[in-house]
Design a protein around this nucleic acid. Structure first.
Lengths: 191, 191
DNA sequence: CGCAACAGTTAGAAGCTATAACTTCGAGAG
DNA sequence: CTCTCGAAGTTATAGCTTCTAACTGTTGCG
């Protein structure tokens, strides 16, 4: 998942424990959302007691920030992989949808309710730009003047459907989310 | 804000205190989001100490549920008022946008990150249906066969732009959100 | 008027984040 | 190979949080 170059045994072990902590954190978030993520519970799960966890993350906020970073990274990799295998805009939409549906809380960690005070680190916004670059490329590349508008529209429309679906606002409406997405993007797809 | 019919003095006082509690709760939410909403802090602000607040709300969850209900009610009133003064779809979009921007956290309390376990009470979903009914009406009324699709598209596209804007995902892109909304809805407006 | 219901109090349990002080262990320098 | 220093873990504790229990005072209705 992370870089595993030449490291001292200590650094190696440290990276492993950090990954294990994040793994359990994701499980908790998927189960009950970010608010109920408990450092104490995680520590117990990895077999250490309480404050030991602070050797690996400075606090709750830093752990969550690391998770946000990983989420962005995962999304960027997914989008890049889809683009790499020759997917068009609809293919990208399907890839993103699948990624979001596989772990809704991970999607909402990026695109959900913002915390008023919080400001994402620069590197995460850089990864976000990476995603936008792929979208721009899929919209006809830089030579097409309307590409930015189309990419932006793609982004907002996909997010509109996806976030409402994942939040459960369509339950009881008996409609096919995938069909809704292709429908919403249909005007973008005919270039 | 709430019904103030013939009530006993006790009920009257009780309703006043409940409203004051909710007022302070909204202030806290607007300032730092739902996660940092503290019953203790609210109790101190209204001048009572701690557990007294449980006379008015069974717990944190019930208070938040009451806030969600009020948020839905406020949105429905806003939409209904706009519709009542002869606003078209674009007018409705502007009214909703203004409502959302006036208190982003209130918007996200309805349309933001869902809590995995939580299920909204039936009456809140009823208010949500009320909003959808107004949207349906504005989309040409029940006689128009495409009205449901158009209303759904209106909803998802507006939410797509609005939620990303309010979450700050457009910062540094120097684009006009209002123009973006009218642009996204342009295909819906020509009927 | 009397009394029951209600509003408020303090005390305390259980949980959380986070810090401080301490012990134990292991890896690299000499 | 040994010594030593730093990293990793521990317990104790402070200060929050939600929420329950038990108790006191007040108020308004029959």
């Amino acid at each position: 998942m992370t870089d595993a170059q030449g490291q001292s045994p200590r650094e190696r072990y440290r990276a492993q424990v950090r990954e294990e902590i994040k793994r359990h954190a994701w499980e908790q978030i998927a189960a009950a959302g970010v608010p109920s993520l408990s450092l104490n519970a995680i520590a117990k799960q990895v077999g250490m007691s309480g404050p030991a966890l602070y050797r690996y993350f400075a606090g709750r906020d830093e752990l969550i920030t690391a998770l946000i970073r990983d989420a962005y990274r995962s999304l960027a990799d997914t989008v890049r992989a889809a683009s790499g295998s020759g997917a068009d805009l609809l293919g990208l939409a399907r890839a993103i949808s699948e990624w979001a549906r596989s772990d809704p809380q991970r999607y909402f960690l990026i695109y959900g309710t913002p915390v008023p005070g919080y400001h994402a680190p620069d590197d995460t916004t850089a990864i976000s730009d990476e995603v936008m670059a792929v979208l721009l490329e899929a919209c006809g590349g830089p030579e097409q003047a309307t590409a930015p508008q189309r990419a932006l529209s793609f982004w907002t429309r996909l997010h509109g459907v996806l976030s409402l679906e994942l939040a459960g606002h369509f339950t009881g409406m008996k409609l096919d989310p995938d069909a809704l997405i292709t429908d919403e993007l249909s005007t973008l797809l005919q270039r």
